[in-house]
Amino acid sequence: MSHNAFQSEKLQSAFEKLEGKAEILNQNIDAISEDIRALEEKLHILQLPISAQVKVAVSTKFSKEEEDKIKIYEECPFKALESLKWEKDETSGKYRLIYQRLLESEEIPGLSIESMLRPLIECPMPVRLRMHPHLHKIVEVLTEQIEV
């Protein structure tokens, strides 16, 4: 923890609470990133030449960039679908854990706009934090696909 850097005791106390929470958050971020890397490595060792996908979340909240993409479809409601995938990454040619966010029309069948598609470990931290609790699901789907 920090030494008393502030004259105000309330400010010092508030900052110390923030500092403690930031330390825990940073430890969690490191652990989450390590889990993602370790799972990718272990799946590579298994040499599974199959793809899998797990739909993780549905949202009606959009970023400014996403709102700009869908505003041309006036009055057409959209939802954002978040998925985890184990598939070949187009850039590296290797199977990777991939995060996908699709903006899907709720009224026009087949209308979807890709908002993000990239290896999970390369995604912004808020995405990794949201997806971490779902990593086991991709393993479960892969297991189901190879059951004999």
Results as ranks from 00 to 15, higher is better:
residue 55 K to E: 14
residue 99 Y to W: 11
residue 14 A to T: 07
residue 28 N to M: 10
residue 104 E to T: 10
residue 111 L to P: 02
residue 80 A to F: 13
residue 44 H to L: 14
residue 90 E to S: 11
residue 34 E to H: 09
residue 115 S to D: 15
residue 121 I to K: 12
residue 37 R to S: 12
residue 40 E to D: 01
residue 137 K to S: 13
residue 96 R to F: 01
residue 108 I to D: 04
residue 25 L to A: 09
residue 65 E to T: 07
residue 36 I to W: 07
residue 33 S to V: 00
residue 22 A to G: 00
residue 47 Q to M: 08
residue 21 K to H: 09
residue 59 S to R: 13
residue 4 N to Q: 12
residue 41 E to M: 03
residue 66 E to H: 07
residue 52 A to W: 13
residue 15 F to R: 03
residue 55 K to W: 11
residue 53 Q to H: 00
residue 134 H to M: 04
residue 116 M to C: 13
residue 6 F to R: 04
residue 40 E to H: 04
residue 66 E to V: 03
residue 133 P to D: 03
residue 142 L to P: 01
residue 83 S to K: 15
residue 5 A to N: 12
residue 67 E to S: 06
residue 68 D to W: 09
residue 117 L to Q: 14
residue 112 S to K: 15
residue 17 K to L: 10
residue 96 R to V: 00
residue 84 L to D: 12
residue 9 E to K: 12
residue 89 D to W: 03
residue 138 I to W: 13
residue 26 N to I: 01
residue 39 L to N: 07
residue 28 N to V: 02
residue 75 E to N: 15
residue 53 Q to T: 08
residue 141 V to A: 07
residue 74 E to N: 04
residue 90 E to H: 05
residue 31 A to Y: 07
residue 118 R to P: 02
residue 97 L to V: 14
residue 26 N to P: 00
residue 45 I to P: 03
residue 11 L to D: 02
residue 137 K to T: 08
residue 44 H to R: 15
residue 129 L to E: 02
residue 66 E to C: 04
residue 87 E to V: 06
residue 18 L to D: 02
residue 77 P to R: 11
residue 108 I to M: 03
residue 75 E to Y: 12
residue 47 Q to W: 06
residue 22 A to K: 03
residue 7 Q to C: 03
residue 42 K to I: 06
residue 86 W to T: 11
residue 4 N to A: 13
residue 29 I to A: 03
residue 70 I to S: 00
residue 32 I to A: 10
residue 112 S to Q: 15
residue 120 L to W: 07
residue 34 E to N: 07
residue 94 K to S: 14
residue 139 V to A: 05
residue 114 E to I: 14
residue 103 L to Q: 07
residue 140 E to L: 02
residue 105 S to K: 00
residue 72 I to F: 13
residue 10 K to Q: 06
residue 55 K to I: 13
residue 76 C to S: 01
residue 124 P to W: 01
residue 48 L to V: 14
residue 16 E to F: 06
residue 78 F to W: 11
residue 43 L to K: 12
residue 33 S to D: 07
residue 31 A to V: 13
residue 21 K to G: 02
residue 110 G to S: 01
residue 17 K to E: 10
residue 67 E to Y: 05
residue 138 I to C: 14
residue 147 E to G: 08
residue 83 S to M: 14
residue 18 L to Q: 06
residue 89 D to V: 01
residue 71 K to S: 13
residue 46 L to A: 15
residue 32 I to Q: 11
residue 103 L to R: 06
residue 51 S to C: 09
residue 38 A to S: 15
residue 106 E to Y: 07
